[in-house]
Design a protein around this nucleic acid. Sequence first.
DNA 1: GTTATTTAGATAGCATGCTATTTAAATGGA
DNA 2: TCCATTTAAATAGCATGCTATCTAAATAAC
Lengths: 149, 149
Amino acid sequence: MQCYCHHMTFRKSESAGYLANHMARLFALGLQERIRPLGLAPAQFMTLLELWNEENLTQKDLVQRLDIEQATIANTLNRMQRDGLITRHENPDDRRAQLIRLTEKARTLREDATRAAQAQNEKALAGFSPGEREAFLAMMTRAIDAMRR
Amino acid sequence: MQCYCHHMTFRKSESAGYLANHMARLFALGLQERIRPLGLAPAQFMTLLELWNEENLTQKDLVQRLDIEQATIANTLNRMQRDGLITRHENPDDRRAQLIRLTEKARTLREDATRAAQAQNEKALAGFSPGEREAFLAMMTRAIDAMRR
DNA sequence: GTTATTTAGATAGCATGCTATTTAAATGGA
DNA sequence: TCCATTTAAATAGCATGCTATCTAAATAAC
């Protein structure tokens, strides 16, 4: 007979961090499967969301808008260039920076990729009422804001 | 004047998948910083949660309990062995499988590591009432269950 | 104007996740 | 018993994220 009474009880099923990790992995896997036929990967899709909205962004712009590190977006952009999704152009105002533009191929993927992402969101939230969905998004946003401080 | 009216509106701030990814990254970063002084990394902590609860698990057991791929846990276990957190032992019942046991060092980390994870959860949910916390965990669990189908 | 500092991006190195494949042992069927 | 199949783990290769560091250009200080 051992004594476990001095151990902290930490149930991963009741840990927000554990559940967030698990949920994010499942979202990424589901999205990956849906956009693979388009030749896209999840981080590329995330980046395209910004560039579909506005082109001629710099790495610095993307770092701020996506809240990722500069090294991360640099690598993602390399893969997107390799895959024919973006081109990089000289910035006449700052020779250190580069302006990122989409290829025609990347522009044509917008509808299909967006629909794929919406389908994955729909799968995850299938059992949620409109009010629950709104509350869920709001709570995730609050947790994000709290952790960014 | 261009026409944007045919584009799908997809706001990342209203996408459950996008928010889940962002939130999980912030949880992982925060946890990483808190447990780094202990010589632990997030995936190691996740694995330890299972092994603190029960030793002599196999890779297959961990795959099922953590819902990750076998190759993923194999790599994590390699790093944990390298860092002196686990040992691997012959399974008398099945010479293909191995029994994972904790080192004394890993056992002593339980309290501090658990407190670190709880502190990170607390930071994320600081503004949440007890009812909101419960609802948030329940919704994440529902989304996970929906996507695992 | 020259020098020091800051800033944009590239790169090295690593952790964590994945898929796909290989190896070896266990199991099941004939 | 022997062969085919299944199963546990290892390994290769890749994507996505991180930190830390380097280079080159822009900016600030003098």
